[in-house]
């Protein structure tokens, strides 16, 4: 039986892991290579690295981080943040990344998804979607289904694009996986946006990684069960050692969720 994955996320800027609230107010959380090795030993199923500075210098640092991590960490590595071209993707894959995640660049240029999938395979292309729940007042009165809007540029730019529609389109274009972050929940540690996660997961045929809002182990459990996510991504609860990966897996296993231990 395919197990559910627990994925620590390392937001990196200037070669340091940081964590913020709703994409701002950053706190330092350590050295990316050391943290990666630590999570590998703890039993993390995959790792995600996001270059949140997304500057050219930051990208060079990220290449170096990925190279060093891939020499000692033998689980899948997903890398993203500021990747805009096939060449950017190739560079990260050559450095040792297994998957590439694209967000703003995919919205601005959806062909990047199909082109990347064609060159490197769909399994390589993770489309990251930052979704913000639309205020009830803004919603069409014709239905009660909530809506989410895609944000780009690290959550700063609204796009007017419906997140669920974009998720479907990204998969049609060749995305092999979706990394779905709730802008509203991110960094608040009050739980994932379960509705967003479930509706997206049911709308697409590829795996969905739930992200944004994990504050305790029950939140992980909810995202996997009610949210129907295939994997859960979390940062703060692991970086600040609130819980270990092992504790998280024990908790999920006790509730009947298949995990790798």
């Amino acid at each position: 039986m395919l197990t559910k994955r627990i994925i620590p996320c390392l937001d990196v800027t200037d070669g340091r892991v940081v964590k913020g609230t709703s994409f701002t107010e950053l706190r330092d959380a350590g050295d990316p290579v050391e943290l990666a090795a630590f999570y590998y030993k703890e039993g993390a199923d995959e790792l995600v690295f996001l270059d949140i500075g997304a500057t050219p210098e930051g990208r060079n640092i990220m290449v170096d981080v990925v190279e060093r991590v891939s020499e000692q960490v033998f689980i899948p590595l997903t890398v993203g943040g500021g990747l805009r071209s096939i060449d950017d993707m190739r560079r990260m894959l050559k450095a040792g990344a297994d998957k590439i995640t694209i967000n703003t660049a995919a919205v601005l240029n959806p062909e990047l998804i199909s082109e990347g999938a064609k060159r490197f395979g769909s399994q390589c292309i993770v489309v990251a979607i930052d979704a913000r729940r639309e205020a009830q007042a803004l919603q069409e009165k014709t239905d009660d289904v909530p809506k989410w809007e895609v944000l780009t540029h690290g959550g700063r730019e609204p796009t007017g694009i419906d997140a669920i529609q974009w998720a479907k389109e990204a998969v049609e274009l060749g995305a092999g996986e979706l990394l779905l972050t709730s802008w509203d929940a991110d960094g608040h540690q009050t739980g994932y946006d379960l509705e967003l996660t479930r509706i997206t997961s049911e709308a697409v045929t590829v795996p969905v990684i739930a992200s944004g809002g994990a504050g305790n182990l029950e939140h992980l459990c909810q995202a996997l069960v009610s949210g129907k996510a295939d994997a859960v991504l979390a940062a703060s609860i692991f970086h600040y050692r609130t819980y270990s990966i092992r504790q998280a897996k024990d908790y999920l296993a006790e509730r009947g969720i298949a995990v790798r231990r």
Partner: peptide, 27 residues
């Protein structure tokens, strides 16, 4: 979900040196 992406168990059907020291059903 396709692709199958993640950790799954491998049930060993034969005895072969490639499985040496690897538990049956390992992920």
């Amino acid at each position: 979900k396709v692709p199958q992406m993640g950790w799954n168990q491998v049930k060993q059907k034969v005895s072969h040196p490639i499985f040496s020291g690897i538990p049956d059903g390992a992920n």
